[in-house]
Design a protein around this nucleic acid. Sequence first.
DNA 1: GAGACTGGCGTAAGCGCTTACTGGAAATGT
DNA 2: ACATTTCCAGTAAGCGCTTACGCCAGTCTC
Lengths: 370, 370
Amino acid sequence: MDARPTSGATPTIYDVARRAGVSIASVSRVLNGRDNPRPATRDRVLKAISELGFVPDGAARALSSRLKQVVGVVFRRVYGTDDGGMFEDESESLLFGDQINRGIEIVAQRRGYDLLVSSVNIDEHTLPNRIMTIAGKCDGLILHDQVLSPAGIASIARTVPVVTLAGAEGGPVANVRGDSATSMREMARHLVQDHGYRRLAYIAGHADSPDNIVRGRSFASEVHALGGECLTGPAWQGDYSAGSGVQIVRGLIALGATLPRAIACANDQTALGVIYALAEHGLDVPGDVAVTGFDDLPFARHLRPQLTTVRQPIQEIGAKAFEVLHSMISADAPQDSDAVQDFVLPTRLIRRESCGCPPDSRPAVWRQIS
Amino acid sequence: MDARPTSGATPTIYDVARRAGVSIASVSRVLNGRDNPRPATRDRVLKAISELGFVPDGAARALSSRLKQVVGVVFRRVYGTDDGGMFEDESESLLFGDQINRGIEIVAQRRGYDLLVSSVNIDEHTLPNRIMTIAGKCDGLILHDQVLSPAGIASIARTVPVVTLAGAEGGPVANVRGDSATSMREMARHLVQDHGYRRLAYIAGHADSPDNIVRGRSFASEVHALGGECLTGPAWQGDYSAGSGVQIVRGLIALGATLPRAIACANDQTALGVIYALAEHGLDVPGDVAVTGFDDLPFARHLRPQLTTVRQPIQEIGAKAFEVLHSMISADAPQDSDAVQDFVLPTRLIRRESCGCPPDSRPAVWRQIS
DNA sequence: GAGACTGGCGTAAGCGCTTACTGGAAATGT
DNA sequence: ACATTTCCAGTAAGCGCTTACGCCAGTCTC
């Protein structure tokens, strides 16, 4: 029995112990489902717990057991290209990131972990501090694309297990990503070979995003290999936002440029903006210009025309990232040092209408879950 | 100076102190930006910190300072009506909830708080346990709509500050919500008076969602007051998912029912499904049937026709919820007991095309940010 | 029925921080 | 020059848990 005074505030394990007439050790054992305490004792404790409305303190538990059961997830706060307010919410809505987080969360929960999410603004001068604060609150970190420089990542990884998403292949830590290269090559083939387009373009995402670079390169090189032409360069530099798609198309049209026959976008949101801007000028998609996306976010199939895109196994990417991180956390060895792993998940081309394919006329109910 | 042995693992404040030749108290003071330590000392400490890659442990800090600087956010994991896979991702994508969380996060960050997010499945039999675990990891809880019964909320609120979102007016704890009633009445007026529709319907969201109930009641009563007819009942019971919108319309058409002239949906996602299903049967929106949503999610304006809906200040709702919670956490008094507050934020009717209004033909750049 | 187990439970030592208290040195006042 | 104040920095006492250890029944063995 312990003689500590009853706290006036929230009940602690001592209060429970006193009320149940046992020691705090027994309460702890009941709390953790050990089978030591015999039923009678267990019941007394359980009763005291519920009478007091006792909630064990996570911080104390974490401190003592050296496990917080929390994973940190950091993503970039996106402010897309400003296009006069039209897409301001859109660029804020991080559909892709949210889906990934959902994937992480679902598997994390199965292991008793919760997610500590935090967005960062790259320009923040206190970035290292913010990341450190977050790191201190969890057992491991999952970093979305483009939140920290490779050097920054390496440095934080000295102290806490880190997994990156959609990072570069040879990064300093374990990385999980979709197989952008293969599917973008497939996309190029589809557009050039199946549809016969010769003059195409790729609207890029953030210039410093490894995944974006891979997408652009794979697409362009395959188009060239097939004898097509692929426009790139500053005029085609977007930032993953719908707004950037709008502005690029408007800019091109304003300059009187001849648009390519097909535009492949770095992601679905950009494609959304492109289609919008094209429609604004009376251009038909895919009749005048074919447009494709990347990610296959839910809205892609509700657009008119339905968006041809690449399906990424978004939630699976998140799930995999957690599993990798979890094994790093569990492994006592803080560093597996040698071979840093790069996990690549398969992606798939989803042909819908915006590339020029005919609409699928079967009723949705009969359609394959594809 | 402290004689504790150097830990082989992650460095602690003791390691930093030893390396800098000071006491742990001084390190702590530097860490917390106290102005006590003089520059020379401070620099030594800072140097040691960066050399060791020291990251202060959040759990220890929380335990000691009795503040975790973490707020828990719990939302319901939604599995929408199954419609053969067509909308399965959609129903998982919780657009609305994610936006709210973004709002919470942004203001939380300003106060040094991070978000612990966790989705729960209502059917879970261990729900109380899950919520308790989460509660133990944070200083306060924000509960989205429909994650816990009022009794459950009241019980957990005994122990930790709680704020609910879109809860019922007379709930057991502080609540933040949009002014659904006013805008739905306005919607009814617009549809009946401006467009002259007489036969309308409301597709409901979760039957047990207070906000849904308010929306439905306000709409129906205003329609009636204006001499119109508002269809409701089991045939019009959805669940906030696009899939439910699809199924309801398909079901009605299959039964040969005469569709109303206008359908107001509980939220944008439902409207998305309704429009989809209507198009599937060759029905024109708004020509044959007008459709409206609620929330004004980003995709609403990219639909064809653009969706007429009610704009909720989504991020502001989240922000407000955090502010309220934060003041509860800061107030030493665990219970302000008496008047539980209900914060209502203004909403606004956004007239676009799906109600029958003419498309806005001004170029987007010139359009008001409205 | 004495010795060796065994299972249930209490004691106490931390986990890595924050912070009240305190002592000594430096700065200030007269 | 001495008394007084001010400033820094160290000591140590927790914060609320988990868990190694050990004690004391009650069981088992032969």
